[in-house]
Simulated scan of single mutants.
Amino acid sequence: MNGRIAGVVILISAIIAGAGMYYLQVYGFYEAVYEEDVQLVSLTSEQPETIVFDNFQAIDAESSPIRYRACFTTTQSLAFLTESYVLVDDVDPRNAPNWFDCFDAAAIGAELEAGTALTFLGAKNIEFGVDRIVAITDDGRGYVWHELNDCGDKAYDGTIVGEECPGRPADASE
């Protein structure tokens, strides 16, 4: 009898722990972002510049620098944007939680592959080793996510970073 009680307690504890971890990963750490600009890096100044946008929705989490996702619309044409701002190649959108329904990574990836959307650099090193990527479709829908750059890939996989990467910012707790 004691074995059954212990087994049931362990089973219930595992179910509660699993449900808690699921909730924290999918819902718990994300917060809505309300005041944000949509920026692209200019070809001339090499600095981020705010573009015209509307219908902005975004989420972020402090637990990871790559959890940022945003959706917006813009009236600026792809022709104007490609002449004015830095394009990026070979990036795929990261998945967003299912409940953030304006950001569908598979659909965005299909548009990028079909050539009906282009990706731009929104900001370099928004955090150490992380760039902000902005994808804009030919009908004016836009999406934003964070992507590890070469320095971030090296820093997080344990490879020696090297001189071409900027120094890591000092930790505020030190």
Rank of each mutant, 00 (worst) to 15 (best):
T73E: 05
E127D: 15
T73K: 11
Y30N: 01
D139L: 12
E31R: 15
T116K: 03
V38Y: 03
I160S: 11
R69H: 10
R132T: 09
A61T: 02
N125I: 12
I51W: 05
A32W: 10
H146F: 07
Y143H: 01
E83K: 14
S77I: 09
G7V: 05
L112H: 01
A58Y: 01
A58N: 02
N55H: 15
L11T: 08
V161G: 05
I15Y: 03
S42K: 12
Q76E: 09
A172E: 05
V86D: 05
F56R: 11
V8E: 01
T119F: 06
E46T: 04
I59Y: 00
N95S: 12
F53E: 00
T137Q: 05
A58V: 03
A110Y: 12
V9C: 12
S64F: 15
F120P: 02
I108C: 04
V52G: 11
D60I: 12
D54Q: 15
A123I: 09
F128V: 01
A58K: 01
G28M: 00
F72S: 01
G158M: 13
D157R: 15
D90R: 11
N55T: 10
S42V: 06
S42E: 07
D60P: 07
A172G: 00
V130P: 03
Y143N: 01
G109H: 12
E147W: 11
W145H: 00
T50R: 11
I15M: 07
L11M: 09
E163P: 12
T119A: 14
F100C: 02
A107Q: 10
A61R: 03
Y22T: 00
E31D: 14
D138H: 13
A110P: 08
F100K: 01
